[in-house]
């Protein structure tokens, strides 16, 4: 474990709980893409299948349980409890256009052609594009609530910190996973546009609104 990965995991945890609290407190999921949340739930479920078979550490197992439970809870709040506030008119990204190609790629490009490894690879590829429905929704509505932009900033920062973690592990541990690094780069690049808007606007107390 290194500082980059620890701060990255905490940033990820923060993002998930900021969103969960926003929905729970405001009793509304306006401006939030339920499709992205479904994809994140799929990412965690397919990635943490080894939760019961492969014990790494208490931290590792605890975080896996928290990530799965909180993301499933978010999907539940959005599609069941506060369904009336779900903005389906703007959350129209066709996620099958993400899941199918990512599923095919996971079969073709992976480290080992075994079920667990292919599911892990699927999860890594899917996570890199899972935020697209959310970014697409913001581009359609033209703006995002400040709390939602904080959520996105923390979420985008987590994988950027993981990139630093992989640089650290490459030099100090000789650890390198090309699939995770490439997907992590794609994932972080997708946030660049948002990071720019966040730093130039939200940091100065303005609302995040995309240029119409």
């Amino acid at each position: 474990m290194n500082i980059f990965r620890l701060v990255g995991d905490l940033s990820h945890l923060l993002a998930i709980f900021v969103l969960l609290l926003k929905i729970w407190k405001s009793r509304s999921c306006a401006g939030v893409s339920g499709k992205s949340q479904i994809l994140f739930a799929l990412v965690f479920i397919t990635r943490y299948l080894d939760l019961f078979t492969n014990f790494i550490s208490v931290y590792n197992s605890l975080m896996k349980v928290i990530f799965i439970a909180s993301t499933v809870a978010t999907v539940y709040l959005m599609y069941i409890k506060f369904k009336a506030t779900y903005d389906s008119n703007h959350d129209t990204f066709r996620i099958e256009f993400l899941v199918v190609p990512v599923g095919g790629l996971a079969f073709l490009v992976n480290h080992d052609f075994t079920p667990l490894e292919i599911l892990w690879t699927f999860s890594i590829y899917l996570e890199s594009v899972a935020i697209l429905p959310q970014l697409f929704m913001i581009s359609k509505t033209g703006e995002a609530e400040t709390i939602t932009s904080h959520y996105l900033f923390a979420l985008g920062s987590y994988r950027a910190l993981y990139l630093l973690n992989w640089i650290y592990r490459y030099y100090f541990e000789g650890y390198f996973d090309l699939i995770a690094v490439v997907a992590g780069c794609v994932q972080t690049i997708l946030y660049c546009d948002f990071f720019y808007l966040y730093i130039t606007k939200v940091m100065w107390g303005k609302k995040l609104s995309l240029p119409a």
């Binding site: 990965r5 995991d9 990820h12 080894d50 492969n54 790494i56 550490s57 590792n60 975080m63 896996k64 990530f67 480290h111 080992d112 490894e117 892990w120 993981y162 973690n165 650890y175 996973d177 995770a180």
Partner: peptide
């Protein structure tokens, strides 16, 4: 073949 590296990352 692929040496089994334990996936210790989240």
């Amino acid at each position: 073949d692929y040496e089994e590296v334990t996936k210790d990352e989240l």
